[in-house]
Design a protein around this nucleic acid. Structure first.
Lengths: 237, 237
DNA sequence: AAAAACAGCTTGTATATACAAGATAAAAAT
DNA sequence: ATTTTTATCTTGTATATACAAGCTGTTTTT
């Protein structure tokens, strides 16, 4: 069995996820049983179950003792509360991204919300802001800070239509492993309200997120402002 | 090995969770290694890892290849976005609950947000509302609907200071297995603003949640309004 | 003294196997 | 015809084992 290449359970996970995303398995459908999947992938139930657990965690399936794994209904809100990132979370909607502030190297803000370790502090950060539209309506304004560690030439990467997560995975083999977010309802200030094209009295969701990656000391911090008038945020657990 | 009584991996999970909750293992501490836990519980790594996975999912620990499991920092926000319920999520804060509408049997609202199956529709629902205070500040107003299936005498149960989840577990052996929530920022209406003791222009977080349980056809639906001026919502994934 | 190799810990992935227990439909008993 | 039993699917829990691979400190080499 190949180990270093790619874990088998991740392949099973990816395969099944694709089959669900593509509509091959639709809402309510029963996935092949664990034993069938074992045969297909020439592996054992422990490995298959590891894949199915993952699908359950991201809300793609539910599992029923004695019955099987059933495909959940597809998401229709913005799944940005989960780990997968906005690009994954919007589903069938059209997501366009406008870079307002191109990635620049700079010092961390003096009043930064999160505690930073020495490694992060000494290397400074990469900062950029993006305005994301769903079906041409500005919905999300995002300020992102990443510790400038092991990210050569990041400032020259294009972020407009690719997900940040995809860029990190493709060029640096960095994957988000876990995260934390805080949520408030606020009134946008002048700047944010104008970006999101709403009145200043309009309530918006403000989120601060810290995402940890598989690389030591590489964290992604973002401050997100979301207009929930047209689209709501959605979360599965 | 006892099977029906209580799964061993759950016991390990509960034990470790308690040790972390009680402060025996503090933030940054290294849990015993998988092999040490194997010896302690006279079991194998698969079982131990199942427990540790659970702790990771609820944000209690992080795991590091080659190093071990490290206790995460304790939550200080309101962990109500997670599956643990408000009573579990508030941590060291003082949570008090005021029942505004005692549980009553009634028909489902005509304009109910979620689709109901025939079983749910035919049995009607149990409805109640609660106002939850943290350190004596009203923070959460909650309207809850539960399908009136397999819940004898529920309307006579006291919900004021026990978590709804605890009542369901204790008296009916019902456990929440998964859920979905939608989030908006809104302005409270007259009623909600006055309940939360805020101005009507004050932005609040509105959440609609559907929680599925281990019992077929028993779902919990709730609409939650949260004043995030003093306390924010928090989520780990 | 600095660098490289090693040993011994850790978690990650995987195989093989077993029995418990829920779901379901066919077969047998009433 | 209805109920009960049984067989056979399914997932849930668990044991035992193995090697890969990350981390850390010690030993050896340079």
């Amino acid at each position: 069995m190949l180990k270093k290449e790619f874990p088998l359970y991740k392949k099973v996970f990816d395969d099944l996820k694709l089959l669900i995303d593509s509509g091959k398995y639709q809402k309510g459908a029963l996935l092949p049983s664990e034993n069938e999947l074992c045969k297909t992938y020439k592996t054992t139930r422990v490995t298959i179950r590891q894949a199915l657990s993952g699908l359950m965690t991201i809300g793609y399936i539910t599992r029923h003792h004695g019955k099987g794994s059933i495909v959940s209904e597809p998401k229709n809100g913005l799944g940005i509360l989960s780990i997968s990132g906005v690009t994954e979370g919007v589903g069938n909607q059209t997501l366009t991204t406008l870079i307002l502030q191109k990635p620049v190297k700079q010092k961390w803000p003096a009043d930064f919300s999160y505690e930073l370790n020495e490694e992060e502090l000494s290397h400074g950060c990469i900062f950029f802001t993006r305005l994301r539209h769903i079906n041409d309506i500005p919905v999300l304004y995002e300020e992102t800070y990443i510790g400038n560690i092991n990210l050569p030439r990041f400032t020259s990467k294009k972020l407009d239509n690719a997900s940040l997560f995809k860029v990190l995975k493709t060029f640096y083999d960095i994957e988000v492993k876990e995260g934390e977010q805080k949520i408030w309802a606020i009134h946008g200030d002048k700047k944010i309200s104008s970006l999101l094209n709403i009145k200043i009295s309009h309530p918006i969701v403000h989120m601060k997120r810290r995402l940890q990656t598989n690389i030591k000391d590489v964290n992604i911090f973002s401050s997100v402002y979301c207009n929930t008038a047209e689209y709501f945020l959605q979360d599965y657990f």
